[in-house]
C-alpha cells in the first residue's frame, strides 16, 4: 500500500519533470525560465531541509484540520442519516453549502482571525470538511437492508447498532474517503498559506513565485508529494488494520 503510493507519485513526478525538461531543451529555454537538472539538484541540496520543515509544518496543520473535519463529519453524518426533518435538513444544507467554493471565504477568515495558525487550520478544515461530510452522509444514510432487517423486525435496532453495521459494511469506502480528504486538507492549508499566512510550504512557494524560481517550486512539490503519499499510505494501512482487528474479534 505505502510503497505503491510512493512509487506511483515518483513516476508521475518524474514524468512531469521530464516533460518540463523536454520543453526546456525543445524550445532552448534558459535556466531562468526552466532550470536544468544540475540546477534543480543544487536547489534541492540547498533548500530540501528547510522546505521539509515547512512541509511538516503545513502537514501538521492539515492533519489537525482533517481530524477535526472527520469528527465533525461523523457527528453530522450520524445525525443526518435519519429520515426525520432534521436529518433531511442537514443533508440539504450540506449539499447546498458544499456547492459554494469555500476557499473564497478565506480572505474573510484572514481579516477576522489574522494570518496565524488558526486561520490556516480553519481553512484546511473547511475545505476538506464538506466533501467528507457528503461521503459520510451518503454511507450512513444508506441502509444495509439484508443485515438490518432482522434487527428492525425484532425491535432490536438501536442507533449505535445501525451506525456500527453501516460503518463496518463501508469501512473500505470510509478509508478511501478519509485518505482522499488528506489531499483536500493539505490543499486547503497550502491555499491558506498562499493567500496570507506567514509560515508553511505554501508561504515558501509564494516567496519562490515572487523570485520566479521554478527550481524551488519543483523541490517544494516533490516534498509535498512524498509526504502526502506517506501520510495517505499510512491512513490506508490504518483502515486495513482496523478492519482486520474488527473482523478477528
Amino acid at each position: 500500500m505505502l510503497p505503491r503510493r510512493i512509487v506511483q507519485f515518483l513516476i508521475i513526478y518524474f514524468l512531469g519533470l521530464a516533460g518540463l525538461l523536454a520543453v526546456k531543451y525543445g524550445l532552448q529555454l534558459s535556466n531562468y525560465v526552466i532550470p536544468g537538472p544540475a540546477l534543480i539538484w543544487q536547489t534541492f541540496q540547498a533548500e530540501a531541509v528547510r522546505y521539509l520543515r515547512d512541509v511538516l509544518d503545513t502537514m501538521s496543520i492539515a492533519i489537525i484540520g482533517q481530524v477535526l473535519s472527520i469528527c465533525l463529519a461523523l457527528l453530522v453524518g450520524i445525525v443526518g442519516r435519519q429520515t426525520t426533518w432534521f436529518g433531511s435538513f442537514v443533508k440539504v444544507a450540506a449539499y447546498n453549502v458544499q456547492a459554494y467554493p469555500i476557499v473564497a471565504l478565506a480572505p474573510i477568515i484572514f481579516i477576522l482571525l489574522g494570518d496565524g495558525f488558526l486561520s490556516r487550520l480553519l481553512i484546511a478544515a473547511m475545505i476538506c470538511y464538506f466533501p467528507l461530510l457528503l461521503s459520510v452522509l451518503g454511507i450512513m444514510a444508506e441502509p444495509i437492508r439484508d443485515i438490518e432487517h432482522f434487527y428492525r423486525m425484532t425491535g432490536r435496532m438501536r442507533w449505535q447498532l445501525e451506525v456500527k453495521i453501516r460503518a463496518f459494511e463501508n469501512l473500505g469506502k470510509l478509508t478511501t474517503v478519509v485518505a482522499g480528504s488528506a489531499t483536500l486538507a493539505m490543499a486547503g492549508t497550502i491555499v491558506a498559506e498562499f493567500i496570507a499566512a506567514n509560515a508553511g510550504i505554501g508561504y515558501s512557494i509564494r516567496i519562490a513565485l515572487y523570485q520566479s524560481d521554478l527550481g524551488k517550486i519543483l523541490i517544494a512539490l516533490f516534498l509535498i508529494g512524498i509526504s502526502l503519499s506517506v501520510y495517505q499510505g499510512l491512513l490506508e494501512w490504518c483502515g486495513a488494520f482496523i478492519r482486520r482487528t474488527w473482523e478477528s474479534n
Partner: peptide, 23 residues
C-alpha cells in the same frame, strides 16, 4: 408476525455463534 428471507446476512464482526448468543 416476523418475516425472514433467504438473502439476509449476519454482521461480519463476530462469529455466528456469538451473534446467536446475543439474541
Amino acid at each position: 408476525v416476523l418475516y425472514t428471507y433467504n438473502t439476509e446476512r449476519l454482521p461480519g464482526w463476530s462469529a455466528v455463534g456469538t451473534h446467536l448468543e446475543r439474541i
